[in-house]
Design a protein around this nucleic acid. Structure first.
Length: 481
RNA sequence: GGCCCGUUGGUCAAGAGGCUAAGACGCUGCCCUCUCACGGCAGAAUCAUGGGUUCGAUUCCCGUACGGGUCACCA
């Protein structure tokens, strides 16, 4: 039975990288029919942010990840909040002391500082307290001298296997006798993490590759306890560029930010899953179920992946295109209502027009702004090589079509379109020679989400004719009214 | 600095000894078209580097360069 866990710190927001790790953990568990567990790592009270746990619940929910066990849903391996397991850690640390795998250390901060010269890095603890006699230790304890408990690293080499990186061997000489229990009695992350994963029966540990170098120390702990070592899956980070991780601190978008920018949760999930993982089949749009089905650790990449906002936009556009017109209208309606104030405009039909032309709903306003108000435009807009139109002949074409439209009995797309096309035909013109000037006069823009006749319908007869006449004015025809 | 890890087009990436080195985003061009978009087609663009091993290395080995990580009473 596979059991994976997502163990975020409640610091107030969800990194994209964290979410991706959660997704991989979820997929691996579910692919194997196992359980996905949520554990809150809140031992660092300095960084604790109120309400952060709710953000975590909410993010997982929006992303479509359901945890089988966690603080809110319970489970048989609780508590799921690290601070509530406080008492366990000391117990296990003392067990190691008992076994000679760990020892009390009474060194003061000052003494430790003096071990390394200014700015020194990589100076190991000198094991000063390892040689303390039993009497000295008991004396110190009796006198309440502050202490920490350190792991006793044994000589030799440690090799571990990672499913992504393969075998990694490290000389134990390079490891320090790390602190397991701090002088405040709380465990360090390095210790708590091992205890928690063991007590929660975690079988697969998936985490960022910044833990690759501390993994041997964890293995030494597992061995000291005589516990089974989990399967390790380390993943490379998600980057903003070649040098920096994607992070909120650098002003990069969090999951919540992306949602607010109009990205669909499934599009985000789909995109970030593909950052650092590739499926065996050549495909890139996946439902959650499909990801669970085909997720394979073999596809996880060793090297970092740069987050490309352009590709996310494209993917969001793909998801929008897959929506039914009704679903899309539900999303676009609020934005349309804000950007189109003119009464009588059929928002539903605008919604349909805009659907294949946007990547997020916030692309809509600039596409439809001409409906409320004809923008100022230059007459050079009438010049179009392929349409064979220019500032001079457009004037004639507009004069030709205005009376026709004035007389068109039915103000609907088909009637208007054929009226214009027929007029072109009757006068030996290309369709575009009528359509382009009309579209230009009605929108004042080089591109619109619909054609000339459709704009006529949106605007209605009066506004259409008014704008056409305005067009003549722009072209220097001086025919006001 | 020691140790660990990585390096295929601008980006995401497949490929694991022999292929014209997939595919996607982006870019360019063409077709479609009532403009734009959608859709279709085409194109430009990649194996960090030097040595080995091999009949043959992008692929295996060693070195170099570059990048990242880690060496806390943070997680």
């Amino acid at each position: 039975m596979i059991r994976t866990r997502f163990a975020p710190s409640p610091t107030g927001y969800m990194h994209i990288g964290n979410l991706r790790t959660a997704l991989y953990e979820y997929f691996i568990a579910k692919h194997g029919g196992g359980s996905f567990i949520l554990r809150i790592e809140d031992t660092d009270r300095e960084r604790y942010v109120d309400g952060a746990v709710d953000i975590i619940y909410k993010t997982l929910e929006i992303a479509g990840i359901k945890h089988d066990e966690g603080p809110d849903v319970g489970g048989n391996y609780g508590p799921y909040i690290q601070s509530e397991r406080k008492n366990d850690y000391m117990k296990y640390a003392l067990e190691l002391v008992e076994k000679g795998e760990a020892y009390y250390c009474f060194c003061t901060k000052e003494r430790l500082d003096s071990l390394r010269a200014e700015g020194d890095v990589g100076v190991k603890y000198d094991r000063h307290c390892l040689s303390l006699t039993k009497e000295e230790i008991e004396n110190n304890l009796k006198n309440n001298v502050p202490f920490v408990i350190r792991q006793k690293i044994r000589p030799g080499k440690t090799t571990f296997r990672d499913e992504v990186y393969g075998e990694v061997t490290v000389d134990n000489e390079d490891m320090e006798d790390q602190i397991l229990i701090k002088s405040d009695g709380l465990p360090t992350y390095n210790f708590a993490n091992v205890i928690d994963d063991h007590l929660m029966n975690i079988t697969h540990v998936i985490r960022g590759n910044e833990y690759l170098s501390s993994t041997p120390k964890y293995n030494l702990l597992y061995e000291a306890f005589g516990w089974d070592i989990p399967t390790y899956i380390h993943v490379a980070p998600v980057m903003k560029d070649a040098h920096n991780k994607l992070s909120k601190r650098n002003g990069d978008a969090s999951f919540q930010d992306l949602i607010e920018k109009g990205y669909l949760p499934q599009a985000i999930v789909n995109y970030i899953t593909l950052l650092g993982w590739s499926p065996s089949e050549n495909k890139e749009i996946f439902t959650m179920e499909e990801l669970i089905e085909c997720f394979d650790v073999k596809g996880i990449s060793k090297s970092p992946a740069i987050f490309d906002p352009e590709k996310l936009k494209w993917m969001n556009g793909e998801y929008i295109k897959m929506l039914s017109p009704e679903e899309f209208f539900r999303m676009s309606e609020p934005v349309l209502e804000k950007s189109i104030k003119t009464p009588g405009v059929d928002l539903r039909s605008v919604s349909d027009m805009v659907k294949t032309r946007i990547n997020t709903v916030y692309d809509i306003p600039e596409l439809v702004d001409f409906i409320d108000e004809l923008p100022e435009y230059d007459k050079s807009l009438y010049r179009h090589k392929k349409m064979k139109t220019n500032e001079e002949n457009s004037l004639d074409f507009l004069r030709l079509i205005i009376p026709v439209l004035e007389k068109t009995p039915d103000w609907d797309n088909d009637s208007l379109y054929s009226a214009m096309v027929n007029t072109a035909k009757e006068n030996g013109l290309k369709n575009g020679q009528i359509l382009w000037p009309v579209r230009t006069a009605l929108s004042g823009k080089p591109a619109t989400p619909c054609g000339a006749s459709e704009i006529c319908v949106l605007l209605g007869r009066d506004e259409t004719l008014a704008r056409l006449k305005k067009g003549i004015e722009v072209l220097g025809g001086n025919e006001i009214g």
